[in-house]
Design a protein around this nucleic acid. Structure first.
Lengths: 216, 216, 216, 216
DNA sequence: AATGAATGAGTATTCATTCAT
DNA sequence: TATGAATGAATACTCATTCAT
């Protein structure tokens, strides 16, 4: 019973998680049987339970990975010189280009988060992490004089999250939905929230394809 | 000749739907057994199937009710003299005051809509209905000169839906989330989208260079 | 609560029995629901139980009718001057022309007779009745010198029944089975069992399309 | 690596089939629940479905076995020097000594064959197999000059089947039925059908004019 | 570490029958 | 007499998880 060395162990877990993600995205959490996952991962049921403690544990694992991925994405935003440009990039990647499969998975996880406290905790941790990251980014930008000093970072971060979630959900539910048409408007709204942009930046012109409204 | 008169019939259906809503919100669609629903409704399994054809049929019924309720709510907005005031009222009712139970139910239905085409159809029908309703409201307002004639109704309707969905989801996932703080900002964003035209300006450039909205 | 006059009562029973026969033949006893029968008969479930005490009771009723019908058929054979001619006619009617629906019904009843003693009793009563009838017919014929006096009526009656049952079953099971080819041979076999036929009778020539066996 | 070796696998299937045969014979297909079968076989429901795909699949399995057994029995007839003696043996075994339980099972399967195409196919395959086997046996015998060359093998094979089915059915339905009394007569009938050629005669006429078998 | 056969509680739905009207 | 809504036990099959090997 010599334990598998850590890297193999981790690799096996990742492999199973991949399989589970595909299955859940394809068929949903409840319609996916453990057999499905084991078959997809090429692993025996017995082996599965060496790496995960239960079917629900898989969702925790998926959340964990999501969190790591998001952390990287947000870190890259932090390093970007232009907040709006980085945000635009993020929106592009996460709301428009993310394969629909992922969106479905997300929805599935959200639903599961309602019943399973552990998963709920995981999901909220991710959301908090994202919100806090945005807050920090906004504070930094404010400190550097790049955004309106009167803007409330916490609220703006929330709004950004809300817009992201809304876009995500819409795309998931409606295969016909065209996010590209909305994105520029959304970006301009956020832009209007965080205040004056340094002129000559590419994003303001680029992102906005609709006529923005004059705000009182 | 007893043949249940139509109103009793309908009342019984509504009663069962109420029970199902509670169960689904509490435990989720898949974790709720027919026995659970029957117990909650005080109805025998046999009787249940006199009113609904299957477990899934319940979701269709729930969607139907939702649609009717939304239609009424949106009709009242249509009659309101002030679009933004009415929208604010709607946001208050649907995004802030709606009991969390409903939010959870919503999430559950969304997840189910991904796998079950019939339910997906139902859900999309509701979403389309809402979007179209907003479009019509905006067109009316435009016709009456109350909003910026250059605003694209379809896109704005989408954005409103997205914001609504996002708020809804956020509240569902995070019991601590305080929608009240965000709502005014969100309303002002929408207001800025439909707001009165600034005369004589090529608006796209203009809008982005004006002062951002002051968030109270 | 004045009881329905006897004839209406009986007519209603017959009507329901017809419906049940169709249903059982079409779908089998177990796959037919009471609702099916009630729908087919245009009768409410409640009403059904005024005329029959249970689903199984229907089979008893069907047997009863069968018995009556067979009694008539056999009576006509008894009156026929030529036993073989009458038998040939009987075979034609019961084994070749009987609609397949009836055959299926028969099979269904046989299967049910195995489990339900009451039905078993009914079925055996019919079979005994048929056998006894044949015995009597044979005895009569023997008394009139029309058949071989050494033939054992009981055994021959059995053999006739066995051949009839076999034909019946075969036709029921195999839609392609062509009874017409076998019938003459079967008749000639029976003919050979009961001994010399009075010459000049039409039947020997008619019924037998194969060359009949000469019985000593 | 435990992966059940083929023989154990097969043995388990046989064991379950035995249990199912008993149950079906005792209670009929429809009145037997999967629990009944599992209890009788000492197997969990889950395990059952490792060996069979459905309740109906059991009947296919039973047919399969029947076919194999029949094939062996018929093969032994083929090797016998005396066709009639072999047939007599077969009749003894299959129609007289077969335990009544088997007969009931048979009846049950026949009834089921009427509604379920897959089972119907199975049953017809067996019947065809038997008929074809008899045809071949008769042809062989004819080639060896043992039977009347004018006899039509196909028809005689049919008649044999019909007699067998009839006997079978009769025994199943009537516990009092004494097949022993009929068997010799039946055999003599068959014998008269295939009987030795009278030389120099146009046999069809001849065969039928020979002495009938003396029934003891 | 890994296997995969086995478990057995759990599920949606049906249906013969009853009974208030 | 007749209705048909209501009952609730029963059923075939699934699936997360375990455990002997």
């Amino acid at each position: 019973m010599p334990k598998l060395d850590e890297t193999t162990q981790r690799a096996r877990r990742e492999h199973i998680l991949d399989a589970a993600e595909h299955c859940f995205a394809r068929e949903g959490f409840h319609r996916t049987s453990m057999q499905d996952i084991c078959r997809e991962a090429g692993v025996s049921p017995g082996a599965f339970y060496l790496y995960f403690s239960s079917k629900e544990d898989l969702i925790a694992g998926i959340c964990e990975r999501e969190k790591t991925a998001l952390a990287q994405a947000l870190a890259s935003v932090a390093e970007a010189p232009d907040f709006m440009a980085a945000l635009s990039q993020l929106g592009q990647t996460y709301c428009l280009e993310e394969p629909r499969e992922k969106l479905r998975l997300h929805l599935e996880i959200n639903a599961e988060a309602m019943r399973n406290p552990a998963i709920g905790h995981n999901v909220r941790a991710i959301d908090d992490f994202v919100a806090k990251s945005f807050e920090r980014l906004l504070s930094d930008a404010k400190a550097k004089g790049r955004i309106n000093p009167s803007a409330d970072e916490a609220t703006i971060a929330q709004i950004i999250s809300i817009l992201g979630d809304g876009l995500y959900l819409r795309r998931a539910l409606d295969p016909e939905f065209d996010g590209k048409a909305c994105m520029p408007v959304i970006l301009s709204l956020i832009s209007s929230l965080i205040g004056p942009v340094a002129e000559g930046t590419e994003n303001s012109d680029k992102a906005l394809k609709t006529d923005p409204v004059q705000v009182e």
